[in-house]
Write a protein that binds this DNA or RNA. Structure first.
Lengths: 140, 140
DNA sequence: ATATTTGTAACTATAATAGTTACAAATGAA
DNA sequence: TTCATTTGTAACTATTATAGTTACAAATAT
């Protein structure tokens, strides 16, 4: 199983924040996501670094959006997390083989194209889209 | 680091096979890739199940392509390996929360779109393209 | 017959990530 | 000013996917 859940958790958290005018605590978000508050803080810290949310410590603190949900694209969320690219290469192909010596150069461009294909697809959606979909599902 | 190297290893192996009229052993492929022959066999077994290569045990055995390199698309190679999708969801969002209860439904479609974006991009390339690129790099 | 090679099970090693615990620092309210 | 709340973060453990390794049976060519 692919186990990098930070992206899914981040979308979940941002969607939850989009439903609330008051700040939400890491604890409240964690309860909705079903994880530990520290896991939430770690993901949200990356989003904060990229200007998507802000946090306030202390009583009545928590997290809130810094932009309208319609202005938060999923590609930007994805990139904010700084994950590795989804396709990886083997490290030390044999340099004395004519394929081994140049396979990494050839794969680099292809893998970048694949990564861009995925990110472009994500960029078609915003947190507002997710929220609309979630709420529509709740009405059925 | 993303550590699923099977795809990169498979492309490497198929490109190597495209340079050879004789079958290549798992050992020979492993030497070019810089890994263990069993790792090569495991990746190649998936490709064999999907009709891309065949194997022959015993003396002068090994692996060979069952199609022209120009007829082996990278999306098909990717799919033959049966990897998990690149984006994963958290398992148990809180069903008593209106976001938690429906987030998985909303994310499923988005993640599928992202996966398709990546696979479409891969589908633009074949093993022949990779071989051409590798050989061109070798001439410089 | 013999050497070669795949097929595969069983195991260990590595590494990324989630999850947990603990506590300092910041904040707001009584 | 004191106290409860909450983030920030370090340090650690647990889990899991995958690579890598070892061993050996079965198949094959000469």
């Amino acid at each position: 199983m692919n186990t990098n859940l930070r992206f899914a958790i981040s979308i979940h958290a941002l969607t939850l924040l989009a439903t609330s005018s008051d700040p939400l605590t890491s604890e409240a978000i964690a309860t909705s996501v079903d994880t530990n508050p520290v896991v939430v803080r770690r993901a949200m810290a990356s989003l904060r670094e990229h200007g998507l949310v802000e946090s306030k410590p202390g009583a009545h603190g928590g997290w809130r959006l810094l932009r309208a949900p319609s202005q938060i694209g999923l590609c930007e969320v994805y990139r904010s997390l700084g994950s590795e690219d989804v396709l990886a290469m083997h490290s030390h192909p044999n340099q004395h083989c004519r394929v081994g010596a140049h396979i990494k150069g050839a794969l680099t461009g292809i893998f970048a194209t694949a990564q861009a294909g995925m990110e472009n697809a994500l960029g078609k959606y915003t947190i507002a889209d997710v929220l609309t979909d979630v709420l529509a599902r709740g009405e059925k």
